[in-house]
Design a protein around this nucleic acid. Structure first.
Lengths: 322, 322
DNA sequence: TGGCTTATACTTAGCCTGAGCATAATCGAA
DNA sequence: TTCGATTATGCTCAGGCTAAGTATAAGCCA
């Protein structure tokens, strides 16, 4: 069965029809204000900005920018592609069976949403209350999630599967003395979906979901949001992207608070400053922050030069230099 | 201008038509044999396995698996999504202006390609000869690329732009005393495209490209391959994915050679072993490799348990444990 | 002035990493 | 049989980075 290079020439079992589909562009647009991570939402905070990829759009990003600006009045700055989703049965209403969602992560500063737009900045922990560990592990994990996850694990038919399920839960949620890993946002969401502990699972025809703290969204938007948060939490560790979320001038504490807001956990203050300085990511502006509580802090700005100077790449292999 | 949550209800400037498109699924299927990285190709090594996403496919991955098996007879093992491309003018022939390509990276072991399939395993450095630095920087970089990149930089209209271009070239290709960064595969490819040094640029209507060492591919397949190589080079550093490419039992040197093949650079032998052992990624099988040249080596196997034990995530921030 | 808050400097121990030295096995040719 | 080539494997050492903690400075306000 020799097959033509790219397109099946009407041959093959694939029907000769064009197999056309529609593509939705979805944006996870993030900002941090006063140490709280926010995402841009529409439809009464039930959905992410999104719209179909249309003929007039020159590229996917162009289309995305157009939709976000049309729906929120907010221009899009830094943008990167997240993931392309297409599973049927994960979109809530039985829409066109072949719509794929191409999602993007965008970073900006929070601006007031212009009048006439149905858009809001919503705190991202409203949708993922179990993800905020800045004040320690949230109580709802021990009180609410753990027993239900244990029940879910126990409900598996085989002992092996039971153990497997519990291990997965323990790893993703940091149970049984394990460490919390803030990057596993998507895995946690997917686990809750599988365990039918969130409304999306019930909606998609699974068992009835117990009502869980944390707001749901239209379609698979909360899954996309989880993907975005996970990506951002991973990325702040090896790329200077936080600065996209900061005003031009900021104190080191403000910067730290932003990182903590995204990571969902606290950072060692002194070491954080040392890191910023020795990596030369920031430089003093010479000015001093006013209206502060304690000792006034120096103001810093991002050293854009680093982007040109370095082509940073983490190495975890003993690569030889010779 | 209030906008409806997800779909513009026929309102808005977007036309009321359905904006249907077609989606191609493209696979970068990698194997390593005898220390050489290979990719599965079809069409006389000119294209990657690919085919349209069809109604009958339950998900994108399902569709991809179906196409790869149909075209190459090779089953797909480990798979992860790479990127979704849609730029017009980058696909060679002016195909349907709205085809998007959803690309995946797959890892397997090289099997003989079944008879009757137009599929081959091709060395990936045939397509990217400048990427193999295992025997030092390839001569073609100094002799061939550097002068042309310098010329390209010089050809910019403004002095500032000239400097910018050269800096980009120097960073991506490790010129001017800079270190070679093996992860910048895509950036290098895109730079060569922009500088019109590869056939794809000429084909897409740019200036006539000087013939460059390195084989081109159909459409934007070489770009997709570059994306795959880059992803894999990054990933082997923080996830134990190399093992997907290894036979069940292997010596540490074989493992090292595979890593080097992918990374395109050499690794410090003793440190590599130390890393493998202290991370407990492998365990001895008890057997000893036969038919070797020097002192016989112990055989190892991958410790699958690590996948369950750890939820590894690199940390480059001073996250507090308290 | 003392207490509160935040900023900033410095120290220390442990771990990881790059790099190199030394020794062990095995084979084949001199 | 010995030497040389080749690969395997063990070990050391210095430098750098990291987590964590101590100490001090500089404001505000009661």
């Amino acid at each position: 069965m020799a097959v033509a290079p790219r397109k099946p020439k009407g041959s093959d079992k694939g029907s000769g029809t064009a197999h056309v589909i529609t593509a939705d562009l979805v944006a996870v647009l993030v900002a941090v204000t006063d140490g709280e991570p926010k995402i841009m939402t529409i439809a009464k905070a039930d959905a992410l900005p999104s719209g179909p990829f249309e003929f007039k759009h020159r590229s996917l990003q162009t289309g995305l920018r157009a939709w976000v600006e049309a729906q929120t009045g907010h221009p899009l700055g830094y943008v990167e592609q997240l993931y392309t989703f297409a599973d049927r049965g994960r979109t809530g209403d039985a829409k066109s069976p072949h719509t794929i969602s191409i999602s993007y992560l965008g970073l900006t500063r929070e601006d007031q949403v212009g009048a006439g737009f149905e858009a809001h900045w919503s705190g991202w922990y409203d949708y993922f209350p179990w993800e905020d560990h800045r004040a320690g592990a949230p109580a709802l994990i021990a009180k609410w999630l753990t027993p239900r996850l244990r029940a879910w694990a126990k409900s598996a038919p085989l002992a092996g599967l039971q153990r497997e399920r519990w291990q997965r839960a323990a790893i993703t949620f940091g149970l049984d003395e394990r460490e919390w890993n803030e990057e596993l946002v998507l895995q946690r969401y997917e686990l809750l979906y599988e365990a039918a502990l969130i409304p999306e699972a019930a909606r998609d025809g699974g068992a009835a979901a117990t009502l869980v703290p944390g707001r749901a969204m239209t379609g698979d938007h909360r899954r996309i949001l989880a993907t975005g948060i996970a990506r951002l939490r991973a990325k702040i560790k090896y790329r200077p992207v936080v600065f996209e979320l900061m005003p031009t001038e900021f104190t080191l504490l403000q910067l730290q608070r932003s990182v903590e807001a995204l990571a969902g956990r606290l950072v060692h203050k002194q070491n954080f400053r040392r890191l910023m300085e020795q990596q030369q990511l920031v430089e003093e502006t010479g000015a001093i922050a006013a209206d502060t509580v304690g000792r006034p802090a120096k103001l810093f700005r991002f050293r854009h030069a680093v982007l040109a100077e370095r082509a940073i790449a983490g190495t975890k292999l003993p690569l030889s230099r010779t």
